[in-house]
């Protein structure tokens, strides 16, 4: 089986995230890392490989589109256990929107498959920075594959995939046949930490760097200047004014709370 996991390099959510003067996300000034939500995708890809067994010769490839530093996201996936890494990096990609990113990812998935088809493209449920949650659906659209998305429980049997999806108004079971695009939620279970052995082994794993021309994507199709949507303005939210904080002593807290709610007309 041939599995490709898409991993994004994002600014650390616990850091001080900012915008650049051109209204794109500052990806240089803040420490970045493999999006935590993509760790779940790597984990599930590895579990599917483990379940398939060694004799199926399953290969898990971690694929990242992003700036120079984004190679760290690929490395982390390799340390967790992915077999092979691909980093698509090209100055022209900077500032790309989801539409353009999905184009680059789609071409890279096709190239990653080479002579054999890619059976499974696994993604996280959203990025932790832009959190649009649309790239998996866009990838499925571009690749002409079924989408099995927002999976919280995953079962595979041969080329059959069945997942539980906590939809907007119902819990659903979704089924489809490989090849397909799968996206997984943080309900799928903790992602593994790279072991010392994994970290050492990762250094010897193949890691390819591709540019847009390697993918046959024209630089004019991606990047900020051709984005199909445009940010006009970004404003930091004014800090909330310090509220009143009381210490509960012998029931005083409950009384103060009820009084606050009454004063604000919530009762």
């Amino acid at each position: 089986m041939n599995i490709v996991v898409c991993v994004k390099y994002v600014p650390d959510a616990t850091g001080d995230r900012q915008f650049e003067s051109d209204n794109t996300v500052d990806r240089v000034g803040v420490d970045g890392l493999l999006s935590e939500l993509d760790e779940y995708a790597v984990e599930q890809a590895l579990q599917i490989k483990e379940k398939a067994g060694d004799d199926t010769e399953t290969v898990v490839t971690a694929l990242c589109v992003g700036p120079e530093k984004a190679v760290d996201a690929v490395r982390k996936a390799l340390q967790m256990g992915a077999d092979r890494g691909i980093h698509v990096v090209d100055d022209a990609i900077a500032g790309s929107d989801a539409v353009a990113t999905s184009l680059v990812l789609a071409r890279a998935v096709e190239k990653a498959g080479g002579e054999t088809r890619v059976d499974l493209v696994v993604c996280g449920m959203a990025s932790t920075d832009a959190s649009m949650s649309v790239v998996p659906a866009m990838l499925a659209e571009r690749l002409g594959l079924p989408q099995v998305t927002f999976a919280s429980v995953i079962e595979t049997q041969g080329d059959q995939v069945r997942v539980k999806r906590d939809g907007d108004s119902a819990t659903e079971v979704i089924g489809a046949t490989m090849p397909l695009v799968l996206s997984v939620t943080d309900q799928t279970g903790e992602a593994r930490y790279p072991s010392f052995k994994g970290i050492m082994a990762a250094k010897k794993k193949p890691l390819d760097t591709w540019s847009l021309s390697d993918l046959g994507v024209d630089a004019g199709q991606v990047g900020l200047s051709v984005a199909w949507s445009e940010v006009q303005d970004t404003t930091a939210r004014p800090p909330r004014t310090a509220g009143e904080i009381v210490k509960d002593e012998d029931g005083s807290g409950a009384t103060a709370l009820a009084e606050f709610l009454a004063a604000k007309k919530f009762i």
């Binding site: 909330r240 210490k247 103060a256 709610l261």
Partner: peptide, 28 residues
């Protein structure tokens, strides 16, 4: 969480909430 609040109570929710609920129901 207290950095965000308009109003906060430092206390045990298991005592504060039932007591506040009772007072709210009384006020209603």
């Amino acid at each position: 969480i207290f950095e965000l609040v308009d109003f906060g109570v430092v206390g045990d929710l298991h005592t504060v909430l039932p007591a506040a609920t009772e007072q709210i129901n009384k006020r209603k």
